[in-house]
Design a protein around this nucleic acid. Structure first.
Ligand SMILES: NC(=O)c1ccc[n+]([C@@H]2O[C@H](COP(=O)([O-])OP(=O)(O)OC[C@H]3O[C@@H](n4cnc5c(N)ncnc54)[C@H](O)[C@@H]3O)[C@@H](O)[C@H]2O)c1
Ligand SMILES: NC(=O)c1ccc[n+]([C@@H]2O[C@H](COP(=O)([O-])OP(=O)(O)OC[C@H]3O[C@@H](n4cnc5c(N)ncnc54)[C@H](O)[C@@H]3O)[C@@H](O)[C@H]2O)c1
Lengths: 214, 214
DNA sequence: TAAGATATGAGAATTATTTCACAAATTTGG
DNA sequence: CCAAATTTGTGAAATAATTCTCATATCTTA
């Protein structure tokens, strides 16, 4: 069982592990069974020792002289990341984006089941979206007590994100994925990740504007 | 005019600058006119000298003893990032996600105008989405010659992303925002950013699973 | 106009991450 | 079964990024 060997693991390592899984899954789909760090590194656009060092935080998954068995390595990394299980999630803010996410089947496929949908708009409460009844945000605590969700997804307007986060924290969630373009403040034990593709467009803009700074 | 003072700027700095803009815009909406690095840092969840150092790459934007004028600082950072102008973009892959993005008005609002929509499915070509006629991917080069787009957005299935990227590169694009969950290979002068919220869910999963490793 | 309070900007010190280099393990072919 | 060819895993070295510290600049108030 891949067990964490060392204390602190860089955030960058976690991000790369997600990339490795993605690339390995595509390789697997194309029929590759074994791969060594060199070509995998090329496909992921990183240094080969970087991959080996990242993996070394969790154990020894390769075979010297051979490389890594793709299927095996996927299993090892997903286990290290903790995504080899079901994660129950709830979504707050059933608007355009919220509905699109509720209908997105990939969540369930990847083990992130959305088991609750919440909104504060009385016109939306009671509506059914993708097999879930939209419930009043005030009942978040009670509902999470029932369904045991651990991750909250925020898709409210930015000025409501902090309020939504407060409700989620109070309800006992310990991870938040925030799609609203605003930062939220939460207690230390709660993890927050932000999704905002404009940040990526900004990065492109910068890199195109300053081509030499690479 | 904010001019780049130093040669290499860390990628992490660029990502943070985008966060600063986001937080500053929200502060501005709430009426804040001046802010010092300490409270701004708190809102962005970073160290105050980090902010000052990040800004120092581009110039001196603060007033000693006072702090930063919010409006001014937003202008300085957006100028540094190169997002104080219009960026013309094209989108390849007019499916569920592609259509949602084409209808998303925020792009235009933020200066990223989608001026072309491409797909290879003959049933989709000719269809009109959000005021744009869907055009065959093969005509990408010709169309970009006309509309002068510089950024391409990929929303094809993962196994088609590389092909889409090749078309975009050939057409002379120099930045790509890839929503497909696969890595693409492009020449050195082309910049690629990846958007995948499962990577963020993976990070949450890891952090919740290993609470001590923070 | 001078003193006290505040907050930036930048060099130095620290800490973290990445890359290198190579010993150890495994396979393959004669 | 041994030698040659691979390729991992890891300590050491090199790089990079972050944080600390403080001199310097500005504002406020008396
Ligand atoms: N639409 C997109 O494609 C898109 C893309 C990226 C980011 N976003 C961001 O995602 C968020 C949602 O976008 P949208 O287009 O779905 O907006 P929307 O207005 O359609 O939906 C927002 C929903 O949140 C609900 N809401 C408001 N306050 C709430 C609260 N306190 N508790 C619970 N629910 C609350 C509203 O009733 C509404 O149903 C925005 O912050 C937007 O910037 C949207
Ligand atoms: N739907 C979502 O909410 C969502 C969210 C995140 C990521 N994604 C990713 O975005 C991509 C698109 O998702 P979707 O749900 O819109 O899929 P989709 O199948 O609805 O759309 C894909 C579109 O791409 C077109 N296409 C295929 N090959 C092409 C090519 N070579 N050139 C041009 N067009 C081509 C298809 O004709 C189709 O119209 C997928 O990779 C998916 O994993 C989707």
């Amino acid at each position: 069982m891949p067990q964490q060997k060392s204390e602190h693991i860089p955030r960058a390592t976690i991000q790369r592990l997600a990339v490795y899984v993605q690339v390995l899954e595509n390789l697997q789909r194309e029929g590759t069974e074994v791969i060594s760090s060199e070509p995998l590194a090329k496909a992921c656009n990183v240094n080969a020792s970087q991959i080996r060092k990242d993996l070394a935080y969790f154990g020894e998954f390769g075979v010297r002289g051979v490389g890594y068995y793709v299927k095996n390595l996927i299993a090892s990394i997903t286990s290290a990341l903790g995504v080899d299980r079901e994660w129950r999630t709830v979504l707050v803010g059933v608007g355009n984006l919220g509905k699109a996410l509720l209908n997105h089947k990939e969540f369930r496929l990847r083990g992130f089941n959305i088991v609750g949908a919440f909104d504060c708009d009385p016109f939306k409460i009671g509506e059914e979206v993708s097999g879930l009844e939209v419930v009043c945000t005030k009942r978040l605590r009670e509902m999470i007590g029932d369904n045991g969700a651990e991750i909250g997804i925020i898709t409210t307007p930015p000025e409501r994100a902090q309020r939504a986060a407060n409700h989620l924290v109070e309800a006992g969630i310990n991870g938040i994925l925030n799609f609203a373009p605003s930062r939220i403040t939460v207690p230390d034990h709660v993890n927050v990740e932000y999704v905002d593709f404009f940040h990526h467009l900004y990065a492109l803009s910068f890199n195109i504007t300053h081509p030499n700074s690479k």
